[in-house]
């Protein structure tokens, strides 16, 4: 039973860790480009620069979400810890890791696109809306990962 809990917690931690790290790198890329723009033409930055810098942050939140949902599932948050065995531990672990990996990659790549979006903001501010949409294209797969992860966590039976 103990081993089961460890595995599940490891999964939750990985989801948070992977999602968070991805977001950190993603935001760092976008925000760096944003800071460059701020130093040259601060008046162009505006709300859109902030949006572009913040977009890769959602994956971190999704990772956090998955983590919380798993902890909730095995009762770690309320103190009444449930028994996790018969493969449920591994199932929950995979439910977390698959999402975590998706969050990691999508956040990093989204950061690159957002950084490019900041360039658009600098050169052609009128077209920046489209670059925000481009960044959202990448996020789709993080959203899908979150969805599948949530469905799995909900569906995996735990006594």
């Amino acid at each position: 039973m103990l081993m089961g809990i460890v595995l599940v917690v490891l999964g939750a931690v990985l989801a948070v860790l992977l999602g968070g790290s991805g977001s950190i790198i993603g935001i760092q890329r976008a925000a760096q480009a944003g800071a460059a723009l701020l130093s040259e033409e601060p008046e162009k930055f505006g709300g859109q620069g902030l949006v572009l810098s913040a977009l890769p942050g959602t994956q971190g939140i999704y990772g956090f979400l998955v983590g919380i949902m798993v902890l909730q599932k095995i009762g770690l948050l309320t103190g009444a810890i449930k028994e996790v065995s018969n493969g449920a531990d591994w199932q929950l672990f995979f439910a977390c890791v698959s999402a975590g990996l998706l969050f990691l990659f999508s956040a990093i790549k989204q950061g690159t696109i957002c950084a490019a979006g900041v360039q658009v903001l600098a050169k052609k501010p009128s077209e920046v809306g489209k670059s925000i949409i481009l960044a959202a294209l990448v996020e789709t797969y993080a959203v899908l990962g979150l969805l599948i992860s949530v469905l799995l966590i909900n569906g995996i039976p735990v006594k």
Binding site: T58, I61, Y62, F64, L65, I68, M69, L77, T140, V143, L144, L146, L147, V150
Partner: peptide, 22 residues
């Protein structure tokens, strides 16, 4: 299928709100 994002985003709002309260 792409519209399934609506569900995921809705879920994330609810759960983050719940976590804040917790």
């Amino acid at each position: 299928l792409s519209y399934s994002r609506l569900v995921a985003l809705g879920l994330s709002t609810t759960v983050v709100g719940y976590v804040v309260n917790l």
